[in-house]
């Protein structure tokens, strides 16, 4: 389809004449497709446009701040970036001869320019390591890494840090949700064009579901947000329950009455085990409507760290009470 010819201007430019056989209509050209940033002196950077319709045109690329090194065809090039500043790419197609293509709006050509910033690459560095955590069996948890560097990519793995035999499919963000069925170790490799950095390993320790007996307590208000910080709108409050109201350390569940106090909107609350980075399960504990103070009785699973999470699915903060009447251990 494409036939190259005409002036070829390495290294500062590249171009030629091409002819689309049997083409009819107005010639069109897309804007330039290219990465908006490149590393200093990087090679193999690509830029391209797509064209359609229209007879014969003379087509050219020009570049400043870099060097065109090859072209797979006239409309796709490979270039080497300069040391600093930016690369300016320009693609131009214009009418060639009396039988040349017709252009939009009766013009004689199309041009597009794209500026690519040359960004000095900073190698990855890990600022916050993923943290080990204990969870009850069946509970998901979010592991996260904090890292600095240019244009970072992530891949999480199961196993010993640095051993890449067990990548987790699709786990290519700075955090990952995992629900291991048994105790498992995870780590993450952080990469960019100028290096990689492996995190320390974090172990998710799974506590099996164990038999528990019921311990009766004197009824006791373990949470009352009135006059303090309410449960945030569409947010989570983490609350340590063991050690309060005589709930013993190691308790796996609490028997509670939960109350929503005069809600200003409708919504629902989900109580689920801590720690704060436990994955929110798709369940609900109490549903509420505006202005209606309402209670519900529940047995709430407590996290291995002795805390619970209170998620308020609503557009407004919520005053919330938890009264405990006993616990299971």
């Amino acid at each position: 389809m494409l036939r190259s010819g005409g002036p070829v201007q390495f290294p500062s430019g590249f171009g030629g004449q091409f002819n689309i056989v049997n083409a009819v209509g107005t010639f069109t050209m897309s804007t330039i497709t290219a990465s908006s940033t490149v590393a200093p002196n990087s090679t193999g950077n690509t830029a391209s446009v797509t064209t359609a319709n229209g007879g014969t045109v003379t087509f050219s690329w020009t570049i400043t701040g870099g060097t065109i090194t090859s072209a797979s065809n006239i409309t796709s090039i490979t270039y080497t970036a300069g040391a600093s500043g930016s690369v300016v790419l320009r693609a131009t197609a214009y009418k060639n001869g009396t039988n040349g293509a017709t252009f939009p709006n009766g013009g004689v050509g199309i041009t597009d320019t794209k500026t690519v910033t040359i960004v000095t690459c900073t190698a990855p560095a890990i600022s916050t390591q993923p943290q080990s955590v204990g969870v009850p069996a069946g509970t998901g948890v979010t592991l996260s890494v904090g890292a600095t560097g240019t244009s970072l990519t992530y891949q999480w793995y199961i196993g010993t840090s640095g051993v890449t035999t067990s990548p987790i499919g699709g786990a290519t963000a700075s955090s990952v949700n995992v629900t291991p069925s048994s105790t498992t170790t995870y780590w993450v490799r952080v990469s960019n064009s100028c290096g990689t950095m492996d995190s320390a390993a974090a172990t998710v320790t799974v506590t099996p579901i164990a038999a528990a007996s019921f311990y009766l307590l004197t009824p006791c208000r373990i949470l009352d947000t009135r006059g303090g910080a309410p449960v945030p709108a569409n947010g989570v409050m983490n609350l340590v329950v063991t050690g309060k109201c005589a709930v013993a350390a190691g308790a796996t569940s609490a028997a509670v009455n939960v109350t929503v106090v005069n809600p200003s909107t409708s919504g629902f609350v989900t109580l689920y085990p801590g720690p704060a980075n436990t994955v929110l399960p798709v369940v609900s504990t109490i549903n509420y409507t505006p202005g209606r103070t309402l209670a519900n009785n529940a047995r709430i699973t407590i996290g291995v760290d002795g805390s619970i999470n209170i998620f308020n699915a609503a557009s407004q903060p919520l005053d919330f009470l938890i009264d405990v009447s006993g616990y299971f251990k």
């Binding site: 009850p136 998901g140 796996t252 689920y272 085990p273 369940v283 047995r299 699973t301």
Partner: peptide, 10 residues
């Protein structure tokens, strides 16, 4: 009977 707390589940 004894009680076994599970991860909340729909």
């Amino acid at each position: 009977y004894q009680f076994f707390a599970v991860a909340p589940c729909r």
